[in-house]
């Protein structure tokens, strides 16, 4: 279990350094803000409460955007590691493959959770 946490911690630190956290947080924040502003516009005519519209558009946005970001980061974490050759060294250490995968998964989960 120790190995999993170590890998996860490294992934988080790397994501912070690479400004992945910053970029995805800013992107989501900007979209959420613009939606709240735009979302309040149609309320006058249709009569739906502003908050409902905002919530609906926000959730549809996250459904669409979050898998996209997740796909992007995790692809880089595993395929990128293989291509750079860092995976070779990592696997020569006393960690199992599932530990590496789980560690990377946990790390990126934390990053995404923070961003949203």
């Amino acid at each position: 279990m120790n190995g999993v946490l170590t890998v996860a911690r490294k992934e988080i630190r790397q994501a912070v350094r690479n400004r992945w956290v910053l970029a995805s947080t800013l992107l989501l924040a900007a979209l959420a803000l613009s939606l709240t502003f735009l979302g309040s516009a149609p309320t006058g005519t249709v009569g739906v409460r502003a908050l409902d519209v905002v919530i609906v558009s926000l959730s549809s946005l996250t459904i669409f955007l979050i898998p996209l970001i997740a796909l992007l980061i995790s692809h880089d974490a595993i395929v990128g590691d293989m291509e750079r050759g860092t995976m070779l060294l990592l696997l020569s250490y006393p960690v199992a493959r599932w530990q590496v995968l789980l560690g990377k998964f946990l790390g990126h989960l934390a990053v995404l959770a923070f961003a949203t």
Partner: peptide, 24 residues
């Protein structure tokens, strides 16, 4: 390894710490 490479975003000290932790 023959072509050794590390994660470019981390510092040398952090990389060394990471590998030391993995080896306990």
């Amino acid at each position: 390894p023959e072509n050794v490479s590390f994660d470019a975003a981390l510092t040398g000290r952090e990389t060394q710490t990471f590998y030391a932790r993995l080896k306990r």
